[in-house]
């Protein structure tokens, strides 16, 4: 009986551990403090989070030119910047792809796309692909909301619940999180997922 109990105990512990195992994806989790970065914008000027003296926080979006899921979200990203920059949460887009691995995602291509779509937000190039691994971004688009006073991640995930079809959106995750933060509340849904393109590296 003692043996049986021990086996049972081991099995239970084993199961619990198995379910709690972290994914192999490294990088920031909700609640983690982030490091500032310095990346080149499409206007050739560098951008850092510390440049934003008046911001309350940031909507950092890993996105790119070539991923159809990113393209499908461009208008929604523009709308986020339009609505939330003035409220203290500017959008900062970062292209994490290595142009050698993803034709059409070069700095020059980013400049073209930004002009075509009249991006109203900075579109930064993660040269050498050094920033996205710190965040643990795995795909485009991939959103991180960070509050400035503590530089902590408050939300990771999707823009809304229908990435492929904007007409079918019924829940706007990022807007809800930002509204909660602006109202001084905790973010209720801190982690969501959506289909995206894997980040392209050689």
């Amino acid at each position: 009986m003692k043996v049986f109990k021990t086996i049972l105990a081991i099995a239970v512990v084993g199961l619990i551990t198995a379910f709690n195992l972290k994914t192999d994806a490294n990088g920031y989790k909700v609640g983690d403090k982030i490091e500032d970065f310095k990346l080149k914008n499409i206007d050739n000027k560098t951008v850092s989070l510390s440049d934003y003296t008046k911001a309350k926080g940031f909507v950092i979006i890993f996105t790119c030119n070539m991923c159809p899921y990113s393209v499908a979200n461009e208008d929604r990203i523009i709308a986020l910047q339009y609505k939330y920059e003035s409220k203290g949460f500017p959008v900062i887009a970062i292209n994490p792809n290595d142009p050698k691995a993803s034709k059409g995602d070069s700095f020059a291509d980013m400049q073209v796309r930004s002009k075509e779509k009249r991006f109203n937000f900075p579109y930064l190039f993660d040269e050498g692909q050094k920033v996205y691994p710190k965040f643990g971004a795995t795909k485009t688009p991939h959103v991180y909301i960070v509050t400035k006073n503590d530089m902590k991640v408050k939300y990771i995930g999707a823009i809304d619940n229908s990435s492929r079809n904007p007409n079918k959106v019924t829940e706007k995750y990022v807007e809800n999180a930002l509204d909660e933060l602006l109202a001084g509340k905790q973010v209720s849904k801190t982690e969501t997922r959506a289909i995206g393109c894997s980040i392209k590296i050689l």
Partner: peptide, 19 residues
């Protein structure tokens, strides 16, 4: 729609990246 729901249901560790 509701990718958030079915991505997690297909596998709890899938971030949603393809393939």
């Amino acid at each position: 729609v509701n990718e958030d729901v079915w991505i997690k249901a297909i596998d709890k560790n899938w971030s949603g990246a393809l393939p």
